[in-house]
């Protein structure tokens, strides 16, 4: 881009290349040179593509996704064994939301699996990927080469955040799809009953499941921003991951302490399970909106903090 700014001649196409370059080769070569010298704004997304591909090629990422895929299988099998005699899986309201409904409709396994993984497994996976994002590159030394490439600090940080957000969605979908497959294999499918007691068709139920997966993924963007910020503070990927997961656990515990009820509405995990409200008819939006608003706030605050830190940081690793 900057080259184009300093050399307006290059905007005029291959023919004008001969003017600034006294011995420029004619024809095809000049055309190639001109193509090389005029970067397209789209090229900037090459880093995002590389980042996405690199992230899912890491053994660690695949292991995390594997664990997430196994959770619905375990829940499904447990419910199946528990209800073999024709009984109900409902133990007086114990266990994750919707678990008592699974035997009637396999689709409920999606909701149950998301409710079971959202408090810990999903945010832990996101915390690992987010915590490693900058600190891992710094620890391996690859950060300095990305920056002299030059990736640009703001561009690299935005790319990393976009990748972590994409991972939030991917991780959630892995849980949802695995649960849907297991649910379909082990339990009957069909029309379902909402929390409010109304009947909706299976197609609409699938739509709600997709919507819930989206909301669950969005519930994780706050943790993602927090992890990214922690990641800019250290040169050790492991330390950043451990800190992020540690913070996550601490907040979850604090959210259970009644004396802290004044603070609890500001904990990123406080409204996480509000996604169940999407299964009401009509949908109860209050807590959902609070949840998404809180996530946006966390993303803005910690995203800004990460940017302020990363753009001013001396890269000495």
């Amino acid at each position: 881009m900057s080259r184009a700014e300093t050399d307006p001649l290059s905007e005029k196409g291959p023919g004008s290349e001969a003017a600034p370059a006294p011995r420029a080769a004619p024809g095809a070569e000049a055309a190639v040179a001109s193509a090389v010298r005029r970067p397209s704004p789209l090229w900037t997304f090459g880093l995002l593509r590389s980042e996405l591909v690199t992230t899912v090629r890491r053994w660690r990422t695949l292991a995390l996704l594997g664990v997430l895929a196994v959770v619905p299988v375990l829940v499904g099998i447990a419910v199946k064994i528990e209800t073999r005699g024709g009984g109900s899986a409902d133990h007086g309201g114990q266990g994750p939301a919707f678990i008592s409904q699974i035997t009637n409709n396999g689709l409920f396994l999606v909701f149950t699996a998301l409710a079971a993984t959202l408090p810990f497994f999903l945010p832990m996976a996101v915390g690992v990927v987010a915590g490693d994002a900058i600190a891992g590159e710094a620890g391996a030394g690859t950060l300095r080469y990305l920056l002299v490439a030059p990736a640009g600090r703001t561009r690299l940080l935005l790319t990393k955040y976009a990748t972590v957000t994409a991972f939030c969605l991917l991780a959630t979908l892995v849980v949802a799809v695995s649960a849907l497959i297991v649910g379909a294999l082990l339990f009957p499918l069909g029309d379902l009953t909402t929390i409010s007691g109304t009947r909706i068709s299976f197609a609409e139920g699938l739509g709600r499941a997709l919507l819930i997966a989206l909301v669950v993924a969005l519930s994780l963007v706050g943790v993602a921003a927090l992890g990214l910020f922690v990641s800019t503070l250290t040169n050790s990927g492991i330390a950043a991951m451990a800190t992020t997961v540690g913070l996550l656990t601490t907040v979850q515990i604090l959210d259970q302490i009644p004396q802290l009820h004044a603070l609890q509405p500001y904990f990123f995990s406080h409204y996480w399970l509000s996604f169940a409200d999407l299964m009401r008819d009509p949908v109860y939006w209050d807590d959902l909106q609070k949840n998404l608003g809180l996530q946006a706030l966390y993303a803005a605050v910690f995203g800004t903090a990460a940017w302020a830190r990363f753009t001013a940081k001396d890269i000495s690793a």
Partner: peptide
């Protein structure tokens, strides 16, 4: 390929 992709002036073609 990754280091090259980090350079926004590098032609992907």
């Amino acid at each position: 390929l990754r280091y090259d992709a980090a350079d926004p002036t590098a032609d992907p073609r």
